[in-house]
Amino acid sequence: MKRPLYVAGAGAVTPAGLNARQTIAAIRACLSAFEEITLGPLGVPQVVARIPTHRRLHRSEGEWLVNMAARAINEALGAVDPRVAAATVLLVATPESFRNHPAFAKVPVHDFLAMLVERTGRKFHPASRTIDGGAAASLGLIERAANLMEDQGVAQVLLGGVDSLVNDADLARLGQAGRLKGTNAQGLVPGEAAVFVRLAREPKRERVVAAIHGIGLAQEADSVLSERYSQGRAMLGALRDAVNGSGPSEPDIDFIISNGNGERYHGWEMLIARPRFYRTRRELMATAYPAMTVGDIGAASGALALMLAADSFREEYAPGAVALCEVASESGLRAAAVVMRTSGGR
């Protein structure tokens, strides 16, 4: 990256809270938003993390994603002049296309952004886009966000994602593969969420902000969907690319924020990748796993990692000044972002 970008705000709707503050508080307190539901006519129990909501907001899966995302976007954007909103780009990661998410059965993915913008009641920059690629896709577009602000006069970028794995199609797919927690002690807990961070070129009016100094992106051939376990090559490449610049390097990293969801696959991948990357001796590498509170939230996971890093610096509970966000998508995309504590303008 030519210059750092600043995380100047965030918005979230998760099983742990209906805004960013509630979500962060629940993660810090190590609370769990898990609950047990029954699946199918036989009443098979399943642990999930879902957002309690009125059924009028969840008439269909597509409408539910739109409602979640609109709420999180409006929180992240805040009360701004309509002209600022019109100069703001939305980059929205949606559920990965291979999943054939039921949300897009009635709402085609190419119409999703227009519906979302209409639901927010705002007007956004025409460069706004939806993104395929899952959790890692949003982090992978940080450099694009920087270029939009540098070259096209964009005021700011709202970067994030919306997803729900708590639907019949994903539950059946994950269950058939033996990946759900319950039947598999090392399975994942399906969750749902919308999380967005507001990226700016300059820190303005924030007491303390988080600066993104480097990113890395790579594609893993041996994804969790393949018949082979990952050797961590793509994640290792993403980690190395993230520190391959003028910002913090590997010895400077104080803690990790990971979207690891508890699956054996992820544990083995990081067991191989991390020792190859972290070569500086450490007594302890503190690691935050937000999925322990909100479950696997798919495409929203990347923005949640950035939001948690920024809040830990702002509220001064971070174990150090440099965080490394490690994010993996189900289909194999891997991303890493180096985030550093820095004083903002007053």
Rank of each mutant, 00 (worst) to 15 (best):
S246A: 10
R276K: 13
P275L: 10
Y278M: 09
P275H: 07
S246R: 06
N259F: 09
M270L: 15
R274M: 10
D254R: 03
W268Q: 14
W268P: 06
Y265K: 02
A273Y: 03
E263C: 11
I257K: 09
R264S: 13
W268G: 06
E250A: 05
P251N: 02
I256T: 10
Y265V: 09
Y278D: 05
R274H: 10
D254F: 07
A273L: 06
I256H: 07
G267P: 05
S249A: 11
M270E: 14
E250W: 03
L271V: 00
F277P: 04
P251H: 04
R276E: 10
R274I: 01
F277E: 03
E263M: 14
F277A: 01
E263W: 06
P251E: 04
R264K: 14
D252R: 09
S249W: 02
S246Q: 09
P275I: 11
Y278I: 03
I253W: 08
E269D: 06
I272P: 03
I272V: 15
G267N: 11
N261E: 13
R276P: 00
G267M: 11
F255D: 04
G260R: 05
G245E: 02
A273K: 00
G267D: 14
S246F: 00
N259W: 08
I272L: 15
E269L: 12
F255I: 07
E250K: 00
F277W: 15
A273S: 11
I256M: 11
D252W: 07
W268Y: 12
N259V: 08
E263L: 13
I253E: 06
G245Q: 03
G245M: 00
I253S: 05
Y278F: 15
G260I: 01
E263Q: 15
P248Y: 00
G245P: 03
S258A: 14
G247E: 05
G247S: 10
Y265T: 09
W268E: 13
G260Q: 13
I272C: 03
R264H: 14
Y265M: 11
I253P: 01
W268D: 10
P275T: 08
A273D: 04
G260W: 09
G267K: 04
S249I: 05
I253Y: 08
I253T: 04
H266V: 11
F255H: 06
G262Y: 12
I257E: 03
G247C: 10
P251Y: 01
R276A: 13
I253R: 08
F255E: 08
N261G: 04
A273I: 01
M270T: 14
F255L: 00
R274E: 11
S249E: 12
R276N: 12
S246Y: 04
F255Q: 02
E250S: 00
P275D: 14
P251W: 02
Y265I: 08
E250R: 00
R276Y: 00
W268M: 13
P248E: 08
P275N: 12
D252V: 07
E263Y: 07
M270V: 06
